[in-house]
Write a protein that binds this DNA or RNA. Structure first.
Lengths: 204, 204, 204, 204
DNA sequence: TATGAATGAGTCTTCATTCAT
DNA sequence: AATGAATGAAGACTCATTCAT
């Protein structure tokens, strides 16, 4: 047919509208799930007509992807900039790791449902998976560089960091969602901190 | 919804029918995703009528849950019975862990799509999540007991094992799905094995 | 997706339903035009739900095509069986042709809107066009054989008949739809009859 | 609908705009079909905004009608002016008719899709039908006058010409669109020419 | 005059669930 | 107990037309 051409908004008000669709659409998707959110709801939440949604996006899936681009970083990776100003060494390492973990947990709590839904789609949707994985590598790299700046020069640093991120992710999930009564989170956190220290200090 | 009275099949042939619906329904859901599988397909795959499905299940969701109950163990946790016959000590620990990891990876590969879909739903569906988490605790307990039998008596053993399971899970995903080119999986595995050993040997 | 499988109804009532959809759907399409008839209307006219329409047909277009198969013959070509029992010769030829023309006109009048819409789609829709053209050839052949049985053995009989059908079609349209005030239809018919006689009597 | 006040452009540039909308709009409609062409496309092709379209036209349908007025003659009736300079008599009649037919065919080929679409709409759209039929009468009259100038004075000349136009139209369609393998077009053309001669020469 | 963003009713189609047989 | 036909609400998406700027 007419090959529905997606318009790029130029006027300020239009840009705001597109942005609102992404924001509220993504919010809804995260809150209620992709399949449980329909375009009419998204339009309503964004205070636009259903038609305009299709002026700016090819389809519902596109809104999800744009939302990811805009917000995933803030959802998945909290600012750990504070490390930039500190030189990491064995004596303060534990403290820093603890702080990082608590930042991650705080971050997870803030956007719990978003985190859940996106993690879910990572296992189901190719585009989301790709985005997510690329992001993961990027974050790993950022941390690798940070550590290198602080004198960590292991040949397998990338792998070490990747494992560390996994450890932190796991404990976050544990604390934020699982609510396993049988688990003592403080104890668990201490072990994880210990392990991360171990990973970062053992010889090549 | 709940008005529908669900029958519990008594006759042998009926029981088989219910079982087939669960098996083939769950298969399809794992393969194509919950939202992309419809009840007509499930009925067809199970060689029953669509009507009969609603004699045995309240709704589509129920089929998923029943499938989980039947099959999730074999999907998520491979048989590690071989450890039962071995006494674990510091000298053979590395080897055993390596074996366990490779068993997990093998297992993941066997039911990749099932694993993906269920993991996804864990983040979206309360019932699935509860089921999954209960399962996790159970598995942790099994391993805890196994280790205790082998003389591991840390007070925080449960937490240690929980972290270990997380580490193994992460590396499995990495190997089976991610295909991050920048990662050397052998190196990563070695680090993980090392860490697990570390977790299991450090003093209380 | 599920490759929407089209069911072939087996039960008597279902067959009737499918038939009703074709009948009333085709009626509506002929009456209001293909693009001005929606599936909801068709379903309503056939006294079925919208869903059932898609159990028996792939889409709206399919209904049109099935309608064509069922009804086009009766729309386009009236029964001219009465010729079977008569031997055509130069002395009765004019009378027979006049009778045929009046049959065609009567037929056209009966299903005016159907005729219009289908003729229209012949110019727009490939499937309809193919169907229509195949039909045309078939009809030509039937008449050719009829004439041969009556001793008409021109080498170019097929072409002659094709032209004759065109002439009859044209005069039908003229009489039934055009309403050109300036045209005397009796006169016109007489000329056409004369021409057909001429076509059928001139030497090879 | 009719509430919309349609402006008649006065400025030169505005007139050009309106003309462009008609030209490109009509082109698109002929090419892709009325229902498969949307106003956005028309506006784009005419290099105007969608809004302006509704300053000059009541609706999409109007564009079609205006297009018809402007271009239908060139689509349906080729220039047969060359006859003006020749006096038609029995000896050159066949040649002239052959030439006319080939002109018609050439013309059809040039604007095949336009011809198709408009013919289609003639059967569906009242306005188009009226326009088309008026046109037909007009053309018939032109030819009638031409023949009268050449001494053809049959009382039923109008009807004769009308039939002739029908014959020519039919063979054009046959040649340009149908592609019936079983038909020999040269043979068919010869018969048609013969018939036309017959029509034009037989006594009143 | 002109723009093109915005509207929202309308379209086709799917599918969980029910029900007549 | 079983069938599978039938339902109809709901969803994604389109587009003629209007309107704020």
């Amino acid at each position: 047919m007419a090959d529905n051409i997606v318009r790029e908004p130029i006027q300020k008000r239009s840009i705001e509208k597109k942005e609102k669709i992404i924001k509220y659409g993504f919010d809804l998707i995260c809150e209620k799930g992709y399949y449980n959110t329909n375009t009419a709801e998204i339009a309503k939440a964004a205070e636009v007509s259903t038609g305009i949604v299709y002026s700016y996006f090819n389809d519902k899936h596109d809104i999800l992807l744009e939302g990811l681009k805009r917000y995933s970083n803030s959802i998945f990776y909290p600012s750990i900039d504070f490390i930039n100003d500190i030189s990491i060494n064995e004596s303060n390492m534990s403290e820093i790791i603890k702080k990082v973990i608590s930042e991650f947990i705080k971050n997870h709590k803030l956007s719990q449902s978003a985190h859940e839904e996106i993690t879910a789609m990572t296992h189901t949707d190719k585009d989301v998976a790709k985005f997510f994985h690329d992001n993961e590598i990027e974050t790993t790299n950022v941390i690798v560089k940070l550590l290198q700046k602080n004198g960590f020069n292991f040949t397998d640093l990338f792998e070490r960091v990747h494992i560390i991120i996994g450890l932190i992710d796991n404990i976050c999930h544990e604390v934020v969602y699982h609510k396993h009564n049988s688990i003592n989170y403080d104890t668990m956190t201490n072990i994880v901190v210990d392990e991360i220290v171990h990973i970062l200090t053992k010889k090549d």
